[in-house]
Amino acid sequence: MNSVHDCGGFDGFGRVVPEDYDGREPVFKEEWERRMCGLFMITIGAHYSDDEFRQSRERLEPVKYLTRPYYEQWWFAVARLMMEKGLLTPEEFARHLAAGRAAAGNADILAGDA
């Protein structure tokens, strides 16, 4: 598959090491990364193979591949695989996401602006 993930030797991506790097960093910076990593770990093998996962990641549209955070690429890959396998449908995904956001919005309103 000839896509942007095959990137050895490309020019122009700049500095490797962050400015304040001291050799240590947290495994996960955000809670959603932690959850997404966990989601991957418990669905791989059970519902899709390593190769299918890799292939799904590689099919992410190039601009998103290059600009979205790492674990977000995993979200695209796993979400796509689960739908392709027929384990969930796009409709229910969209519905659930909308409902979740509406609930979060309501909770914000009820809590007032803290």
């Binding site: 959603w32 989601l39 977000e72 969930l88 979740g100």
Partner: peptide, 19 residues
């Protein structure tokens, strides 16, 4: 992204695909 990950986890949990 946090909302999208949450939705995926919740949906898969509801369907018994994720514990």
């Amino acid at each position: 992204i946090s909302a999208r990950v949450k939705a995926l986890e919740e949906l898969l949990t509801l369907k018994g695909l994720v514990d």
